[in-house]
Amino acid sequence: MVANIAIAVLLALCVLSTAICCLALILVKDVFNRMHYLAPVTSFSVLALLAAVALQNGWSQGTIKTILILLVLFLVNAVLTHATARAARVRQFGHWLPHPKEHILGAPHGPSSQL
């Protein structure tokens, strides 16, 4: 009984966070702001989902596969966001390094500098 309630709460958290992030996707205007909303889904939502699956099934095939899903999404989504942001900057400015007028802390200046 307690386990069922815990599962329901975890699932509600997962669904709610996903829904908020999806809504933010159309409410926020700038692309670079939009990309941030991919991160909570891949970390928090999937973590809540993993907890719910583990509570429901114990140590089983489903739990192991959900752990793998969490690992893949968590590690790879950051890189995917980075690649997308780079593509957006390349399309906007022609290169992805900071514009001379931009002042980004710790970033090299100009398209000529090497990374």
Binding site: V79, H82, A83, G94, H95, W96, L115
Partner: peptide, 17 residues
């Protein structure tokens, strides 16, 4: 030409892929 250079994928993308 300007704006059409072929950028190499960054180190993070290469390692992850």
């Amino acid at each position: 030409r300007k704006g059409r250079e072929i950028p190499l994928p960054s180190a993070a993308t290469r390692v992850a892929t």
